[in-house]
Deep mutational scan, measured.
Amino acid sequence: GKRLNIQLKKGTEGLGFSITSRDVTIGGSAPIYVKNILPRGAAIQDGRLKAGDRLIEVNGVDLVGKSQEEVVSLLRSTKMEGTVSLLVFRQED
């Protein structure tokens, strides 16, 4: 696979993607993946982020050990017109 650095500018329609966690172990944390890209928002305008990408970092914060809720609040904490920096891991087909 490969790592991608993606910067998304948060506009009025938001970042435009949803996340999910897979393989949750009890008391553990699961990897966070991009669930889908919404028809409006920064992600589809940028065009690089894809469903199935694994989020590794948000704005330089390592997501290991973070819950899905914590990751959502990290993403939401970005101000309007601010930039969210994502490091994602993509499995090659």
Rank of each mutant, 00 (worst) to 15 (best):
E69I: 07
S67I: 04
E57R: 10
T78I: 15
K79L: 06
D23S: 09
Y33N: 02
I32Q: 01
Y33V: 11
I6A: 00
R54C: 08
K9F: 11
V71P: 02
P39Q: 07
R22N: 15
E70N: 05
K50G: 05
D23Q: 12
E69G: 10
I56R: 02
D23A: 05
G82W: 05
V84D: 03
I37T: 01
D93N: 14
G52H: 05
E81G: 13
D23T: 09
V24W: 15
S85C: 08
L38P: 02
R90L: 01
V88Y: 02
S85I: 06
Q91I: 10
T78W: 05
A43Y: 00
L74T: 06
F17P: 01
N59E: 06
G65M: 05
I19C: 03
I37L: 06
L38F: 15
E13C: 05
T83A: 11
R48G: 06
E81D: 12
R76D: 15
S77T: 09
R54W: 10
V58L: 04
R3P: 05
V71W: 00
I37Y: 00
Y33S: 05
E57S: 11
V58A: 14
D46R: 03
V88L: 05
R90T: 03
T83C: 05
S77R: 12
I26Q: 12
K50E: 11
I19K: 00
G65V: 03
K2H: 05
V71S: 03
I26T: 15
G14Q: 03
G82Q: 11
N59G: 05
E57V: 04
P31N: 15
R76S: 15
E81I: 04
E92L: 08
L4Y: 11
G47K: 02
G47C: 02
V24T: 13
K9C: 11
L74M: 12
L55W: 03
E57A: 12
P31R: 08
D93H: 11
L38W: 13
S77E: 15
V58N: 04
V84A: 06
R90M: 01
S73N: 09
P31A: 10
I44P: 07
D93I: 08
N59Q: 05
P39G: 15
K66T: 07
I44H: 11
L86I: 09
D23V: 06
T25F: 10
V71E: 00
P39Y: 05
A30P: 15
L4A: 02
G14V: 03
Q68H: 14
T78M: 08
D46V: 00
S77H: 10
T12L: 13
I26R: 10
T83H: 09
Q91R: 11
G65K: 08
D62V: 10
G52L: 03
Q68K: 09
I37N: 03
R54S: 06
L4N: 01
L38S: 14
G28P: 15
K79N: 15
Q45M: 15
Q91G: 13
D23F: 09
R48Y: 02
K9T: 13
M80Y: 09
G41H: 02
L4I: 06
N59I: 00
E70C: 06
Q91W: 06
L15S: 00
I37C: 02
T12V: 12
Q45L: 08
E70W: 14
L15W: 09
G82D: 13
R76Q: 13
V88G: 01
I26D: 11
P39C: 11
R48D: 02
V88M: 03
I32N: 04
A43P: 02
A42K: 03
R48F: 03
Q45G: 05
L74E: 06
K2E: 09
F89I: 11
G11T: 12
G65A: 06
G47P: 01
V72C: 07
T25D: 14
N5H: 13
F17V: 02
A30N: 03
L4Q: 04
E57T: 13
E92S: 11
D93Y: 07
L15E: 01
T20C: 15
V24Q: 11
G41D: 02
A42L: 02
D46K: 00
L86D: 00
L8V: 05
K9Y: 13
T83G: 05
Q68C: 14
M80I: 14
D46H: 02
A30T: 04
L49S: 00
V61T: 14
K66V: 06
I19P: 01
E13N: 08
R90Q: 06
V84T: 09
S67C: 09
S73Q: 11
L55K: 03
E70P: 01
Y33A: 05
K79F: 14
A51M: 15
T78Q: 10
S85G: 06
G28T: 11
A42Q: 03
G52W: 07
P31S: 13
L55I: 14
E81P: 10
D62A: 08
K35R: 10
Q7L: 12
E57I: 04
G60T: 03
S77A: 14
Y33I: 12
K66D: 02
N5S: 12
I26K: 14
V71D: 01
I6V: 10
K35I: 04
P39I: 04
G65R: 06
R48C: 04
N59T: 01
L87R: 09
Q7A: 13
F89L: 11
E69Q: 13
V72L: 12
K50V: 06
R22W: 07
L15C: 03
D93P: 11
S85V: 07
S21V: 08
L75H: 00
